[in-house]
């Protein structure tokens, strides 16, 4: 949008609207201060110890697990739409075309100016970042960590390597890999709802934790036992398991890597429809 459009009448209207919104919002926030109703969260907190030790993981991936699926889909859609805008999957009518599709060229790299030391440490740093990302996803249910963070850390490793080495990126996430891993991620997350649906009738019921005793003990231990931990808490000792939460997090991580990686890939290297091995210039 052109900023000059905001001059004159439009600008005045916009400022007045913003003022009204601001005053309304501030006054209601002031009224809410100290008066926030706990509502459902009180019940969630009472039940927390039954699932993952990391309460937030339980909130995000169990109580509100289906919300998180759609949020994950938001990231996926964001990536697909961004790549679409760059040129991946642009469609035209077979018998009629108005104009050639808009495409954007890849960025130009000038990696010569980087110092030798940076180039030397680039690869180990990127590999360590990858390991760190993997560690973070395995810590989803016990401590701060999870799929979102893992995905972001791993794609930042990819971006770091791209900055250091340009087209010769040692972390060579190809387009097929990125799209595949994104599909496995979102598809996997979606399908993790299936065991609960088929056995209890509730989509994405946590069959591993099974706190409401709706599924058979066999299924409960298949999904639950691998992640079972001893929780020494003030209230006593509990042997609880996050069930499908760690698996969901891995799927989530895959999806985020696929999505953000695809955005980086498309914006850095542009999009062309040739197969990858031809693009690399016979390498």
């Amino acid at each position: 949008m052109d900023p000059s459009e905001l001059r004159g009448k439009r600008g005045v209207i916009a400022v007045i609207a913003l003022l009204i919104i601001g005053v309304g919002l501030m006054s209601s926030l002031e009224r809410l201060a100290g008066n926030v109703s706990p509502g459902i969260s009180r019940i969630y907190n009472i039940l927390a110890y039954l699932v993952a030790p990391n309460n937030i993981a339980t909130w995000v991936y169990d109580w509100r697990g289906f919300d998180t699926l759609i949020e994950t889909a938001v990231i996926y859609v964001g990536a697909v739409v961004s790549a679409l805008a760059i040129g991946r999957g642009v469609v035209q009518m077979k018998h009629y075309s108005e104009e050639a599709p808009v495409t954007s060229p890849p960025l130009e790299y000038r990696t010569e100016s980087l110092t030798v030391i940076l180039k030397l440490f680039g690869l180990p740093a990127a590999i360590l970042l990858l390991s760190y990302g993997i560690m973070v996803v395995t810590a989803s249910s016990t401590s701060g960590g999870g799929g979102f963070q893992c995905g972001v850390i791993m794609t930042s490793a990819y971006l770091l390597a791209a900055i250091f080495y340009g087209k010769e990126n040692p972390i060579r996430f190809g387009k097929r890999f990125l799209i595949g891993i994104g599909a496995v991620g979102l598809g996997g997350y979606t399908l993790l709802g299936l065991p609960g649906f088929l056995t209890s009738g509730y989509w994405q019921y946590n069959v591993g934790a099974d706190i409401w005793n709706l599924v058979s003990p066999t299924l409960h231990s298949i999904f639950g036992d691998p992640f079972r931990l001893t929780l020494y808490l003030q209230e006593g000792v509990f042997y609880s398991t996050p069930g499908i939460i760690p698996l969901i997090n891995i799927a989530e991580a895959f999806n985020v890597i696929g999505a953000i990686g695809l955005i980086y890939f498309a914006f850095l290297y542009g999009w062309s429809e040739q197969p990858e091995d031809q693009e690399k210039g016979g390498k």
């Binding site: 859609v77 739409v81 679409l84 040129g87 469609v91 808009v102």
Partner: peptide
């Protein structure tokens, strides 16, 4: 969340034709 994903998808459908 559904409204949010809906508005993003609208952009996707529109941009799909690739015209300026």
């Amino acid at each position: 969340i559904a409204v949010e994903i809906g508005s993003l998808v609208v952009a996707g459908v529109v941009v799909g034709s690739g015209t300026s």
